[in-house]
Design a binder for these strands. Structure first.
Lengths: 246, 246
DNA sequence: CGTTGGGTTGATCGACCTCAATAAAAGTGG
DNA sequence: CCACTTTTATTGAGGTCGATCAACCCAACG
């Protein structure tokens, strides 16, 4: 349960984390992230502000309620973002994939925790330095706003899923949504990597592990999908899509 | 079920909609909205771009899937934002109060519908004109990003409520959240105006009307709150807050 | 004064949860 | 590489919270 997202990105050089190619120009996910909006000289400037971050699976990126000191741009691997309630209930508010930016919320303190689902690399920036960098460049600020705006749309879509869909529809919508996101990163899209556990999926969809497992095996039994190690392969995309749209 | 939010704002003059005082300087909600970040000359410029909008309760502001032509700044009254599923299920993604800005998502088409819960006034802007105005002013863009970022936090909080809270906790969290928002607009905060129906509350919290009604009457029976016309009065704020935090 | 939309209340049902057992992977240390 | 533990996934049996279905109340309003 670890390495497919790396596999997806393996052949290419990474952002400033890689000593051999210190330049963002080589970055595998640049065009997909904020950095895609930067001019070469800006890219160089940002590169200098960046500190490489490399984590193993399960390591913490940041924790809820602590001061938000840094922002992150994920270059490889994936993460989960979640909120814990005092009694231990957990809601995952999102999964972060390569190219995703963590720290769009401008709150003083983190409103959620984030940790790595797989080995992960990211470009880390001090929030202050990053903020200064962005504030001087309206077109970057605009791009940042676009990203936040997109996140907002995704969150609203997730509200629909959480509030008004059945367990089976939730699973379908989750798979279709994730498929679309993986597709942006790598061409192929029949097999959907699932770096997260069933428990994580449940905590994302407002379900229990058992229900997630039951719904997935049911869809598998009905030949709508095939459960493979660390992922699923969609056999009947139309059917899953129909479930997801409602 | 109509006029309390107006009552809240009655004594003061409104934004550019009021012919007697055409200047945003008089605007009741200016400091709470995007316009609070504007210099006097910018305010004047924006004023000229604005077209007053005045709707009765239930009138449509915009509809999901149609081209997003305009953005809105609500000056009085309240609205509901929702997504309809093909089979008629509805998820309300938010309620808009005076000072709230509609159109933060930069999507080509609206991802949800919006209509007035009460008689409503707003400043309407062509999206293009507004966008041009903003793009030329980094500090306004920054403010806009802050607003979007705040919306994102609220949406994530709502995801926790939808995914991991019981019916009773949902009601409590809804009331506490709404109380906080009203408090920003008007001092008093014991009585919470509820311009929306029980059905609306249910569609916001992922519950049925019946459950909303039952939970509210239960809290009323237990003397935690008092149901008044068009709202509720919190009798035991600590208790409701405890339920809301979990 | 009938009609209509919103709200409350009761009886029953069912989708999903809880609890429990087992199976299958994935470490871990010798 | 093999025992051994730990984590994750699956499956079953039974319970429950909130949904559904239905009746009724009440205020607003033409």
């Amino acid at each position: 349960m670890a390495s497919h997202s790396d596999a997806n990105l393996a052949p290419l050089t990474l952002c400033p984390n890689n000593k051999a190619a210190t330049h963002c120009e080589q970055c595998r996910v640049r065009s997909l992230s904020l950095c895609g909006a930067l001019e070469p000289d800006e890219l160089f400037e940002l590169d200098r502000l960046s500190r490489p971050l490399s984590l193993s699976a399960r390591e913490t990126i940041f924790e809820q309620d602590e001061l938000a000191q840094n922002v992150f741009n994920i270059t490889a691997g994936s993460a989960r973002l979640y909120r814990l309630l005092p009694d231990g209930r957990r809601q995952i508010v999102g999964f972060a994939l390569p190219g995703d930016f963590l720290g769009l919320s401008l709150t003083e303190r983190n409103t959620f925790s984030a940790d790595a689902l797989t080995p992960l690399t990211a470009c880390q920036f001090s929030r202050q330095a990053f903020s200064d960098f962005v504030d001087a460049k309206p077109h970057v600020l605009r791009k940042l706003h676009q990203l936040a705006s997109h996140e907002l749309s995704m969150a609203q879509e997730q509200m629909v899923i959480l509030g008004r869909r059945t367990a089976e529809e939730k699973i379908a919508a989750f798979l279709i949504g994730l498929r679309k996101r993986w597709a942006r990163l790598s061409q192929q899209s029949v097999t959907i990597p699932l770096p997260m556990t069933r428990q994580d999926i449940g905590d994302f969809l407002g379900l229990t592990v058992e229900t997630v497992s039951r719904m997935m095996t049911r869809l598998a039994r009905e030949k709508a999908l095939l459960i493979v190690p660390d992922g699923v392969r969609l056999l009947d995309v139309k059917r899953i899509e129909a479930l997801a749209e409602s």
